[in-house]
């Protein structure tokens, strides 16, 4: 897994609540057998017009926000299906962090396993950051995972976020979670013997 320590980047605003995984990656893009080819379906129904050309009104297609590695999205991001194709589509498109006031559980888990940081902020920070990036798309944030802070330098705006300590450790060290589980194989065997 790609590690995550610190990131400075511009921010792409998508202030819509309840963006579900069917919006992040519509089901017709789920027939693939790999992870890499999922990215072209990111936000497909919003991003492309009916003739398949890019929708110039959608933020992902706006030149001002190109290259952003941080997505700022409305509350309850990633609700709906368990498809891990959602974080794959985001990381495949260059995103390393999603900032929101809340994430759906399964999306949160899936993101963490792909080096994508789901960062929860409060309503007030969300609104202030949104205003900044909408009025000045060049606004940069610095996310520091070790200190658990997100900082908007030129405005002196900052927020201390919470993250589960194990998830933090895995992101920083790139710990492979399956390896971690398998390091307890003797206990798994013991458990199976006791319960069978």
């Amino acid at each position: 897994m790609q590690t995550f320590t610190q990131l400075t980047s511009t921010v792409m605003p998508l202030p819509v609540n309840n963006i579900d995984t069917d919006q992040i990656i519509p089901a017709r893009y789920l027939k693939v057998l790999d992870k890499a080819s999922v990215a072209e379906g990111l936000f497909a129904d919003w991003r492309y017009l009916s003739d398949g050309s890019p929708n110039p009104d959608f933020v992902l297609n706006q030149p001002l926000y190109q290259g952003a590695q941080v997505l700022l999205a409305g509350n309850n991001f990633g609700s709906g299906s368990s498809r891990e194709h959602a974080p794959w589509a985001l990381t495949g498109s260059g995103f390393r962090c999603v900032i929101s006031t809340g994430f759906a559980d399964i999306f949160n888990n899936n993101a963490l396993k792909n080096g994508l940081l789901p960062l929860v902020v409060d309503e007030s920070f969300f609104q202030q950051l949104l205003e900044k990036v909408q009025s000045n798309p060049k606004t940069e944030v610095t996310v520091n995972l070790e200190n658990q802070t997100v900082l908007v330098e030129e405005n002196n705006l900052s927020f201390e976020f919470e993250i589960n300590p194990f998830a933090k450790k895995c992101l920083i060290s790139g710990q492979d979670q399956l390896e971690y589980i398998l390091s307890f194989e003797d206990k798994i065997i013991q458990f199976e013997q006791q319960t069978s």
Binding site: E84, I106, F166, Y180, I181
Partner: peptide
Amino acid sequence: FGIGTSEVEHVLASQCLLQN
């Protein structure tokens, strides 16, 4: 409960999951 594909791999390999 539902899980993502990485977790599917975990369960296939170990019959276990990391869960809070």
